[in-house]
């Protein structure tokens, strides 16, 4: 039996909204340590990795490891029916073919439940090694979203280069070129405006903006996002979900033909 109660139910809604355009169907894996998802987008260019630790739930019970295949579009439709402040409880039997979502209003005057049909999804699980990144920039999530959006009107790809002077995002296309540089700013008045750069060695990589833009759909989940880069390796775009875990996206760099 699997049962998980999440007081901040809208967090689940935000997670699903962040990945549903990238991944159509995915397996959610439940174990005593938590609720996780790992999935590649349809074209196998990027990887999504979600981890919600069991201790972040008000109640969490998972008697045996299980994998629940869901259509993220259908899951999003169901979660849309939850009120913003509702408590969400997920329930599934060990051998069932459905998962139930129960929504409770904070005043306890409205309770609803929605059953979602599970699906069999073939998916290979990838091992993501701990990487010694050459550079990590942590910037406001809204700033990352803006950079990706602004550069998308100029070109299809972005070169992200991290040097001691800052992290530069460059794009070019028919319109012309654009460069946006963010510099370390750990003394900003507001904590949510701070930018920090951890640079071990300079690194520059090229990425498809379409995917970086799609990752920015996770903006409502966290105040900040970290981009970690190492030569010839996928960038890790990491949104920390407070007290619970993370939603990470990995995107393979573009390389010369």
């Amino acid at each position: 039996m699997f049962e998980a109660r999440l007081v901040q139910g809208n967090l689940l809604k935000k997670v699903v909204d962040a990945v549903k355009d990238l991944v159509t169907d995915a397996n959610f894996d439940c174990s005593s340590s938590g609720f996780t998802l790992q999935a590649m987008d349809n074209s196998h260019v990027s990887l999504v990795s979600l981890s919600l630790r069991s201790d972040g739930f008000e109640h969490f019970r998972c008697d045996r490891n299980m994998s629940m295949g869901m259509s993220l579009g259908n899951l999003a439709k169901i979660l849309k029916c939850a009120g913003n402040d509702d408590i969400v409880t997920m329930k599934a039997a060990d051998d069932g073919d459905t998962v139930t979502f129960m929504f409770e209003s904070p005043k306890e005057d409205r309770v609803s439940d929605f059953e979602l049909k599970l699906m069999d999804i073939d998916s290979e699980h990838l091992g993501i090694p701990d990487t010694d990144y050459a550079a990590t920039v942590t910037l406001p999530a809204a700033e990352y979203q803006r950079i990706c959006r602004d550069l998308s009107s100029i070109g299809d790809t972005v070169v992200i280069s991290a040097t001691k002077d800052g992290v530069k995002f460059s794009s070019s296309g028919d319109v012309g070129t654009a460069n946006i540089t963010v510099r370390q700013n750990t003394t900003a008045d507001k904590k949510e405006e701070q930018v920090s750069i951890d640079l071990k060695e300079p690194v520059a990589l090229t990425f498809a903006l379409r995917y970086l833009n799609s990752f920015a759909k996770a903006t409502p989940l966290a105040s900040h996002v970290s981009l970690s880069m190492a030569r010839d390796l996928p960038v890790m775009v990491d949104y920390q979900i407070s007290d619970m875990g993370h939603l990470r996206f990995y995107l393979a760099p573009k390389i010369e033909d």
Binding site: V45, E124, A208, K254, E256
Partner: peptide, 13 residues
């Protein structure tokens, strides 16, 4: 420019 499959960077778990 070429785009490698993301799975080619990570081993099977």
């Amino acid at each position: 420019m070429k785009q490698r499959d993301i799975s080619s960077f990570f081993g099977k778990a």
